[in-house]
């Protein structure tokens, strides 16, 4: 399979409408005939990344590369960055505002969920510049 590259803009500010990029990616992965569990894991990672971008970074861009071995998802934003990555990776730690919490988000599970459902995860962040979260989901052969 040749590498398929997909790019999805993520709108900032509107948490109610969040999830469009993840929904579109999920549909594409289904059309590619990938295993259900792989699609589910990739979709959860992307959705959590999308929600994080909307809450913390006023949007950004999701880049997805699919080949026969793996799905690579890069969530790139120009937000405030993460001052303490170790703290942000702890389940239950959140800096989300009350609006996000009222909608059921801000449980401090976003990044931990991305780690839980991916095979590899890296966070590149610079305070004041932005954050790129990269996850890899392997496709069983």
């Amino acid at each position: 399979m040749e590498t398929i590259k997909l790019v999805y803009p993520v709108e900032g500010g509107d948490l109610i409408e969040a999830g469009e990029a993840s929904s579109k990616m999920k549909l594409t992965l289904k059309k590619l005939g990938l295993p259900q569990d792989v699609i589910r894991r990739a979709s959860i990672c992307m959705y959590e990344g999308e929600i994080n971008m909307v809450i913390h970074a006023d949007g950004g861009e999701a880049q997805v590369e699919v080949d026969s071995d793996q799905i690579l998802i890069r969530m790139i934003d120009s937000g405030p960055g993460i001052p303490n990555v170790q703290q942000a990776m702890q389940e239950g730690f959140s800096t989300a505002d009350s609006t996000a919490r009222e909608l059921g988000f801000g449980a401090g599970m976003g990044l931990p969920n991305m780690k839980r459902y991916s095979d590899e995860m890296t966070i590149d962040t610079v305070v004041g510049t932005g954050t790129t979260v990269t996850v890899k989901i392997k496709i069983p052969q």
Binding site: I16, I44, R116
Partner: peptide
């Protein structure tokens, strides 16, 4: 009802019980 918690823990093909009713 905490959406990220549900995302992390709910199993595939389960019935999800919640009182949340927003479009997320």
């Amino acid at each position: 009802d905490l959406l990220s918690w549900v995302m992390g823990r709910a199993g595939q093909d389960c019935a999800w019980l919640t009182i949340m009713s927003n479009q997320n």
